[in-house]
Write a protein that binds this DNA or RNA. Sequence first.
DNA 1: GTGAAAGCGCTAACAT
DNA 2: ATGTTAGCGCTTTCAC
Lengths: 351, 351
Amino acid sequence: MEIITIKDIANEAGVSTATVSYVINRTRQVKPDKERRVLDVIARTNYQPNRVAKSLRTRKTNIIGVLVEDILAFPSAQIIGGISDFVEQTDYNILLNDLRMLDSLYNKYDQVIHQKDKINQALSFLIFGAKVDAVIYVGMFDRDISGIVANMNKPIVIAYSTSSDPHACSVTYENEDAAANLTRHLIKNGHKNIGIITGLSHTTPAQVRLGGINKALAEAGITPSDALIRNGDWQRSSGYTCMKGLLENETAPRPTAVIAMNDLMAAGAMDAIAEKKLRIPEDISIVGFDNRDISEYVFPKLTTVEIDLRAIGFSAAKLTVEKLCGAGENANKQSIIIPSNLIARETVATI
Amino acid sequence: MEIITIKDIANEAGVSTATVSYVINRTRQVKPDKERRVLDVIARTNYQPNRVAKSLRTRKTNIIGVLVEDILAFPSAQIIGGISDFVEQTDYNILLNDLRMLDSLYNKYDQVIHQKDKINQALSFLIFGAKVDAVIYVGMFDRDISGIVANMNKPIVIAYSTSSDPHACSVTYENEDAAANLTRHLIKNGHKNIGIITGLSHTTPAQVRLGGINKALAEAGITPSDALIRNGDWQRSSGYTCMKGLLENETAPRPTAVIAMNDLMAAGAMDAIAEKKLRIPEDISIVGFDNRDISEYVFPKLTTVEIDLRAIGFSAAKLTVEKLCGAGENANKQSIIIPSNLIARETVATI
DNA sequence: GTGAAAGCGCTAACAT
DNA sequence: ATGTTAGCGCTTTCAC
C-alpha cells in the first residue's frame, strides 16, 4: 500500500508537480494532451491528494465544526442529518463536537448563559486547535443565545436557536405563523372554544406560539379567555395535569378543542381525556406541535406542526459554505426562517 | 489576530524550535529553566500548535472517522454520544459521515450487501482522503456485516453490528442472555403460557432472541409451542396483527404473557389487547425489547430490555484508541459484548 | 502554458 | 541537553 503523492503523478505523466496541481484544481489552463495524461495517471493510480498537506499550504482545512448542545436532544440528529446532506455534495467535512448539555439544562433551557465558558472553550478549540473553517452551532431549544458565542473571526451559523450577535447568523423555523395556522385549522373546523396548554410560560417559544394563537383568534373575532389557558412545562405529565384542569373547570364551558404547545404535552392531555371517557376527536379535538415520533404512536394519530429540522440543518450548512465562499444567494444573510407545515392527522373533528 | 508559530515561541524564549517541540510533546528531557521559559511564553501568548502541520509531519491526524449507516436510525445518536464521551477525554476528534441508508434499507436491514460499494467508497474517502487514523462504523441494525467493509490497513471498529472479518473488530450488546433473562422474569412471575411476537424471522437478532427465549423456557421445563409464536416484522402494526392472532386463536389457550421482540411491536400488541378490553398486566402481561422512548410513553409503562447504546459507543471509541496506541486492556480484542439490562416497569403481573 | 523552487508549521534525525 | 536542518505533500510565485 504505497503512499502516492503529487510527485509520483508528475513523474509518471512527464510533467511538473505544478502542472498536476493546475489540472487537479483547475487553477490554470493546461494543454489538452498534458491534461489528459495527468488525468489518466490519476485515474489509474487512484491518487487522492493529501488534504493535510493542502490544508497546511492553503490555511483552509475544508472542515466545518458542528458544535451541538446535546446530540440526544430531539432536534439534533435530524439537523445534523440535514447538514450532512448538504455537506456531502461539497468538498467540506464535518467535525462533530457534543457539549452534552441535556442533563445540566433539563427544562432550564434558557439558562445556557451559565454554560458560556464551556461553549466558548469548545468553540475556541474547534477554531484554533482543530482549525475548522467555520462552525455550525446546533441548539437544542429555540431561544435567543445572543452574547453567548464569542466572535472568532470565522463564520458561525446557529441552527435552531437564534442570535442577534453581528458576528453570527442563524437559521431557525417559522414559529408564530405556524401556531397561527394550527389555530386557524381548528377555527376552520368550527371550533371557537379553544383551550391552550402552554410550554414554560417565560420561554420564548411559548410566548411566540401564544402570540400566533392569539393572532388567529383575533382574526376570527374570538376573544381569548384566561380560563382556557393552562401553563405546562413542556413535559408529558404537565399536559395531563393541565388537561385535567381544563376538563374539571366548572366555571367555564368545556373547550371543544385544545392546543398543546408540543406533542409531549398533547399526549399527556390525551391520557387525561381518555381517563374521563371522552372520545378524541368526537368529544374533544386536540393538536400538538413538533411532529415528534410520539405523534404517530398515540391513538388516534395526532394532528401537529412539523418543524422541518432537516431543512434547518441543510440550510445552515448551505449558508455556512456560502459565507465561506463569500458568494451565493445567502452570503450576506443574517437569518433564515424555514417554513413549518401543518400535519393534519386524526385528532381534529369538524363541529 | 497574528498567527503565532513554534518559531515565535522559540525566539521569545531564546531556545530552538526543537526545544519548544520537546517540551510541548515531552519527547525529551529539557533543562528546568528552559522548560519554564518556554511554558511561560506559551501561556502568555495562548499559543496553540498547528495540528495540520503536525499531522503532515507525523502522518497522524488524531481524527477518528465515524461512519454511520444512518444518523436517524434509533441507535445512532446515542452511540455517537458515547463515542464522543470517550473521545473528549483524549486528543482525538470525530469526523462524521452519514451514509443515509435508512430509506434504502427500510426493513431490509440484512441487505446491506447491496450498499457495499457506497460503504467502501465512504470508507476509502475517510481513510485516504481525509486521512483519519481509524474509523468506527456505526450500524443501524445488529447483524453480521462480514465481507462488507474492506481492509484499509487502519483500525476499523464496528459498533452495534458485528463482523468476523479479521481486519475489523466489533462491539455490540448481549442479546441472547438478555432475551433469556426477560423470559426468566416472566417465568419467575408465574407465567408458563408465553406468547412470542418475533421480528422478521430470517434476521439474526430475531433468531438470537428466540434462542434466548427457548433456552429460558427449556430451563423451566416448558415446551415451546408453535401455536404461541407469531412472526412480526419489527414494526408496530405487525405487533398489533400478531397479538390479534394470538388473542383470537381458538385452538390454544390464551397466553398469560407475551414477549414482543421489540418495543414497537409491543406497543402495537398493547393496542390489540386494549381493543379486546383486556387489562394490562392483570389479564395479560407484555414485555418488549430495546427500551425505546415509546416504552415510557405507552400506558402502562412497558417492561423491556435496555441496550446500553452509550456504552457501546464509549467502548468502541476506547477500543479504537487502544488499537491506535497498540496498548490498553483491549488492544488485542476482536469483539466486546456490552451487557443489556432488564428494565422492570408496569406491564408484568405475578400470577 | 509550464517548470523550478520556496515555504506552510511542525517533528525528528543528526550533530554537537 | 540542545540546536540545525531536512522534509512531510502540497500550492503558488516567479521566471521563462
